[in-house]
């Protein structure tokens, strides 16, 4: 890397990290408002936020929703991926494109379409409806990871298992699944983060009692501008970091670094 590129990277690093760093600084502010520089530091905003059910309930809702939608999406995606990768049925290419297609849609359009649809079948503003919405959002991400990991695993390990006397089920449970488990785990963590961060669908489909954290932060921010938002944001970042460390530990961050169409949902 030459000098100019190094200087540019330094500037870019500041640009990329500055807003997040400031959120952390503001969360520790002792002021009543977002003021820079903060007059002093305190943990009072964390204390306030941790006692505030209008943040804590959505936080639990988000965690629950993320876990449930990931598990449900995995139950749909893993069998589909197995068939698509190893058996290549006629039309596999088209089916794969179809299953990944929700990624191509602006998530707000998907959100309003889901709102109309779920309302028309009586699931508007229900928890089930919200869960269905997030499974639709999360499924393509999970499927993509599982497809990639499963394609990369050597089919000969299954063939070796057959020659050693394993039937297809045993070969899958004993050989294939352990081989792809780290990838599945990383994909699941990633899917959880997508759901945990999703705004558009959650904004359209949730109600006051099952509201998710991003929606509640958004709602708060529309009407208020104080360090409480910073504090809850830091708590949210901390959860993301913990999940990331888990992914890194089990599989390496490399699995998340080069999404072809990543993050549609997280962006809203």
């Amino acid at each position: 890397m030459n000098r100019w590129l190094k200087a540019y990277i330094a500037l870019a690093a500041v640009f990329l990290l500055l807003p997040m760093a400031l959120v952390v600084v503001v969360s520790l502010s002792s002021a009543q408002f977002v003021i820079f520089p903060p007059p002093g530091f305190s943990l009072k905003w964390f204390a306030r936020v941790l006692q505030d059910t209008s943040f804590m309930r959505p936080l639990w809702n988000s965690i629950q929703l993320g876990l449930l939608s990931t598990i449900m999406a995995a139950m749909l995606a893993v069998p589909a991926a197995i068939v698509l990768v190893r058996r290549r049925p006629p039309g596999a290419e088209a089916i794969q494109t179809f299953l990944l297609s929700p990624l191509a849609l602006p998530s707000l359009v998907l959100a309003i379409a889901l709102l109309f649809f779920l309302s028309s079948i009586g699931l508007g503003n229900t928890y089930i409806g919200l869960l269905i919405g997030h499974v639709v959002i999360v499924l393509p991400y999970l499927l993509r990871t599982v497809l990639a990991v499963y394609s990369a695993s050597d089919p000969r390990i299954e063939e070796a298992a057959y020659t050693l006397g394993a039937n297809p089920w045993r070969a899958f449970w004993r050989v294939t699944l352990p081989a792809i488990r780290p990838g599945l785990f990383a994909g699941g963590m990633f899917a959880f983060l997508i759901s945990f961060d999703e705004v558009a669908v959650a904004l359209m489909l949730s109600n006051a009692s099952n509201m998710t954290l991003p929606v509640s932060i958004l709602g708060y921010l529309v009407n208020n501008y104080d360090p409480a938002v910073a504090a809850i944001s830091v708590i949210k970042m901390a959860i993301v970091v913990v999940v990331l460390i888990a992914v890194e530990k089990f599989y390496g961050l490399g699995s998340l670094t080069l999404p072809q169409r990543g993050g549609t949902a997280s962006h809203g």
């Binding site: 990290l17 997040m20 705004v199 932060i217 958004l218 997280s266």
Partner: peptide, 16 residues
């Protein structure tokens, strides 16, 4: 890292 921080939070960061 920024990819994994919510867009609401990042917008708030820029407001700061």
């Amino acid at each position: 890292t920024p990819l994994l921080i919510n867009v609401v939070v990042r917008t708030f960061g820029w407001m700061v």
